[in-house]
Design a protein around this nucleic acid. Structure first.
Lengths: 347, 347
DNA sequence: TGGTGTTACGGAGACGTTTCAGCAACCTCA
DNA sequence: TGAGGTTGCTGAAACGTCTCCGTAACACCA
């Protein structure tokens, strides 16, 4: 069965191929209603579907947005990707997501692939794109928006939440519960000192501790961002002699690992250990106890990122600071911090 | 900065454009080593990157595989997608994943989009593609592989695990622990009776119950596949007067919801309630207690699906049965069933 | 009636590749 | 030495669409 092309449609409708194009794209030139009807009818009759590749070829653009995340299996990134997908769909775009698995080469690989596919823009949720990645972006002079992170390597628009402020909020809250101090579970030691949300979470925690006149010395611990590794690290930390009274985790997923470790060790949360996370992942509502955390407005951020990547007009070329779109964060109080009544069923 | 094209490379290397192509693709015609070097050098010097769109246009194929899943935020699908991505990468392909959100229209939307992009094949993890979807596939006569499910609507190759057998294994195991009977938490009532893995899980459970001379009457419950809804349903079920002694869940994610509900209700697992799931999602190892479940070999399945979608030679046109690639399942015994010592730290 | 717009439409040149067919030049072997 | 086969390369035709121009037809007005 030979492929139906625009030529077939034109022939059947008794018009030129150009007119068929005009009908399909509503422009750039007007078409008389009667002609339009004929074309539409022909399209329907033949079951014609424009070839996207050819369209992209000719028009030098696509309806595609490329998105690169470290690992879409982690709830936070999965939810972020989903939010972007939704936001893009609202604007008639499709998003291609690639997992970098935290590896530069994978990141560059996808970058190349997406750029080669002529995506109309890129949304990067990256642990600080490598030099190579930056070079690649440079070479294609692509439209890039950094989402969730704001690394130094790339000078581009970034959409983030108020990470410092949120972390401060959470830490303060933990302190207000009367805990002597709050420990912090940050990322791996290789986390960049600046630009990474986790680095900001640590900074926020540090500030809140300082406000309270407390030292942060020896109270910062490190673990990869996923619950599994966080669980392992927490097992060691909580079983040790100086178990902290409270922990602020830079990520909900980590907090989930900590909660699990506490249970394993029969440490009551929040009774013997208060915990807070960051992100307000959906699962935070279903942990035991429900996790107190910091809300980040993913749908809004996703929408902003998509808008920014699609509309050149929004891309002001001001200073670094001006090109940072920051969303406010808010504390979501649940029970892992010590707030609230125990549920009725628990007595 | 004008885009570097193949013509520029050819000019610099002092050859024809055809030779540049031959060098890039290693064929279809041979190129003298010296010439090849010159071309390679020119490519490097100019920083030339072939335009994938143009390549696709001319060669009428792409390195893309389309994949449609219901919701990549669910761990099982996320892991499956990741496995497929890996398998595809091994063969130099990229995978595009779309979320249908369990809606036919979204499915058709992605189908159209992927097909229009000339993907070299489609991997569907679908709750039984709709008629419309089937029609779309038909129209493009695309290469399709059904992964995880094997709906009736599409007559195509399917890659699945031994769902019936696995469920049987799990149910039997729960029975062997001395439970009077095993309840089953299946999918929503609208789950197709046949072709869906969950339907098969129910069937396996039914058989195991029958083997033991037990009735399944009134012992099958329904909930959507995610932990949140399962949690809600389980809350009702477990708080009721005839709480079952054991539950086999058709999905790990559901089992996680059940576990959470049990904890909420202070029902000891496995002491007062034995639980088993299906899929062996990564998280199953970190639940409390660790979840006994049925293993499905996702990497192998993903690889098989990718092979099948890429190699026509593998697509035998035998009977439905012959075109079903079934992977064995195995019981993964952890602690939610009642096996094993409690962890040292727990006493 | 001639000039000036306006509206609909068609021809045809991109877009950047792949790959077929063709053509020299050179080798091999009887 | 000449026929036949390789080898290495080139020219140019696709691939299916978009879109710039050009043109024809027609209306309107002075």
């Amino acid at each position: 069965m030979a492929k139906v092309t625009r030529d077939d449609v034109a022939r059947l409708a008794g018009t030129s191929t150009a007119v068929v194009s005009y009908v399909i794209n509503n422009g750039p030139r007007p078409v008389a209603p009667a002609t339009r009807e004929r074309v539409l009818a022909a399209i329907k009759e033949l079951g014609y579907r424009p070839d996207r590749v050819a369209q992209a070829m000719a028009s030098r653009r696509t309806d595609l947005i490329g998105m690169i995340v470290p690992d879409a299996r982690q709830p936070f990134f999965a939810e972020m990707a989903h939010a972007v997908e939704q936001a893009a769909a609202e604007r008639g775009k499709m998003v291609l997501v690639g997992n970098s698995d935290y590896r530069d080469e994978r990141e560059v690989h996808y970058l190349r692939a997406f750029l080669g596919m002529r995506v109309s823009g890129l949304i990067l949720v990256s642990q600080g794109p490598s030099e190579r990645a930056a070079a690649e972006i440079e070479a294609w002079d692509a439209r890039v928006v950094l989402l969730h992170e704001r690394p130094e390597a790339i000078d581009d628009v970034a959409v983030v939440t108020d990470d410092v402020g949120g972390a401060q909020l959470a830490t303060r809250h933990l302190l207000e519960h009367g805990n002597d101090y709050v420990a912090c579970l940050g990322g791996t030691e290789s986390t960049p000192v600046v630009g990474d949300p986790v680095a900001d979470h640590i900074e926020g925690w540090r500030r809140a501790m300082q406000e309270a006149g407390l030292t942060t010395e020896g109270r910062l611990f490190h673990a990869p961002y996923n619950r599994y590794d966080a669980y392992r690290v927490a097992l060691g930390l909580l079983a040790g002699p100086d178990r902290p009274p409270a922990i602020f985790c830079s990520t909900d997923d980590q907090a989930i690992g900590v909660l699990r470790a506490a249970r394993e060790l029969r440490i009551d949360v929040p009774g013997e250990l208060a915990v807070a996370g960051f992100d307000d992942v959906k699962e935070a509502g279903l942990t035991d106890p429900p996790l107190t955390t910091v809300f980040s407005d993913r749908p809004a951020m996703a929408r902003a990122a998509v808008d920014l990547v699609l509309d050149d007009s929004l891309r002001v070329s001001g200073s670094r600071r001006e090109r940072l779109k920051q969303f406010p964060s808010a504390l979501v109080v649940r029970r892992s911090c010590g707030c609230g009544e125990p549920p009725a069923t628990a007595r």
